[in-house]
Structures are given as structure tokens and as C-alpha cells.
């Protein structure tokens, strides 16, 4: 019996206890670190991509975050495995939230962060390859903007801490 601080459903707790595709991928084609501006959580997303088919062969993650962060990252690695990059890009954070059986409102940003990290990794892949497919938006999407790079996150948190102390 768990007395978790938030009303997490059993699926999230199960993914938290037994996350899939966990850990650094040494032979990854691309990786992206993404931080959460809402609460300071961070994930790293690793993708192994087949260049010819532009499909995700495998995906893994590492997380400094809450149970919802771990669960959404874990399920997203499962959802995109075997998918073409175009199809993986279409995955919305709402679908991720649905797949984990629903997220508490205050944890929506965890699903957004997972999708943002994935999209950052996909964008990075095309940047390295030096070509942009037609379907890839020129401007970062909402999810990517929400998934800050490590340095941006550190700056934002330190600014927020100063403001916060000022209020006290």
C-alpha cells in the first residue's frame, strides 16, 4: 500500500517501480537533455536511429524527477520504439498522459517535458545530418520550448530563487 503525496494511478506507480528502457545508451545516435521550467526536473533522452529508414531502433532515458516524470519518460520510450521519426514527432503529451492512465493536473508538465525532450533529440538528429525534412517545423514547438536545455534551466532556477528570496 502506497501513500503517495499525489493521487497517482497504479500504472504510474508500476512504471515508477519498474521503468522500461532505463539508462544511458552508449551507442545512441543522438541524445537530448531537457529540464523542466515548472519544477526543476530533468531528463535525458537517448535515441538509436536507423539512417536509411529514419526509424527509431531503440530509445532510453535517465531522469532526475518525480514519479510522473519517470513514468511518462518510460512510456514514451516504449511508444516511439520502431516508429519512423515523422510518426514519433506526432506523439502529443496528451497521448502520453492517456497512456499512463492519466496525470494529476499539477503533473501535466511531466508529459510535456518527455515529449519536448524527444522532439529536441529528433531536431538534433536532423541538425547533425544537415537536412531538414519538410514536416519538421522551423520554429520550436510548445513542448520543445517547455523543455529547457540544462544551462537555460540552471539560469532560470537561479533567477527564480533570487526572486523568491526577495518576496520572503
Amino acid at each position: 500500500m502506497s501513500r503517495s503525496p499525489l493521487p497517482y494511478n497504479p500504472k504510474i506507480l508500476e512504471l515508477f517501480r519498474n521503468p522500461k528502457n532505463l539508462g544511458r545508451m552508449n551507442d545512441a545516435t543522438v541524445s537530448a537533455v531537457a529540464g523542466n521550467p515548472s519544477c526543476g526536473d530533468m531528463i535525458t533522452f537517448y535515441l538509436k536511429i536507423d539512417d536509411e529508414s529514419e526509424a527509431i531502433v531503440k530509445a532510453s532515458f535517465e531522469s532526475y524527477g518525480c514519479a510522473a516524470n519517470i513514468a511518462t519518460s518510460s512510456i514514451l520510450t516504449e511508444m516511439v520504439k520502431g516508429k519512423k521519426l515523422y510518426d514519433a514527432w506526432q506523439t502529443s503529451w496528451k497521448t502520453v498522459a492517456k497512456e499512463v492512465g492519466g496525470l494529476p493536473t499539477v503533473k501535466f508538465h511531466c508529459g510535456i517535458l518527455a515529449v519536448g525532450a524527444l522532439r529536441r533529440a529528433i531536431r538534433q538528429y536532423y541538425k547533425i545530418r544537415g537536412h531538414t525534412p519538410e514536416w519538421l517545423p522551423n520554429e520550436p514547438t510548445f513542448e520543445e520550448k517547455q523543455a529547457l536545455e540544462e544551462e537555460e534551466l540552471a539560469k532560470m532556477l537561479s533567477k527564480r530563487m533570487i526572486e523568491f528570496e526577495g518576496e520572503g
Binding site: 502506497s2 506507480l13 526543476g40 526536473d41 518525480c66
Partner: peptide, 23 residues
């Protein structure tokens, strides 16, 4: 991360609270 730690410990019957932003 603090919230994860509170949940992990609660699964072992240890109930604590956290100063984590997530909680």
C-alpha cells in the same frame, strides 16, 4: 529527487515528507 524518494519509501512502509518542488 525528493518526491520520488517519499514514494519509494512509502512503498517500504516509511512515511516521510519532502521539500521538493514536486510535492
Amino acid at each position: 529527487e525528493g518526491e520520488s524518494l517519499t514514494i519509494e519509501l512509502s512503498l517500504k512502509g516509511v512515511y516521510v515528507s519532502s521539500g521538493s518542488a514536486c510535492t
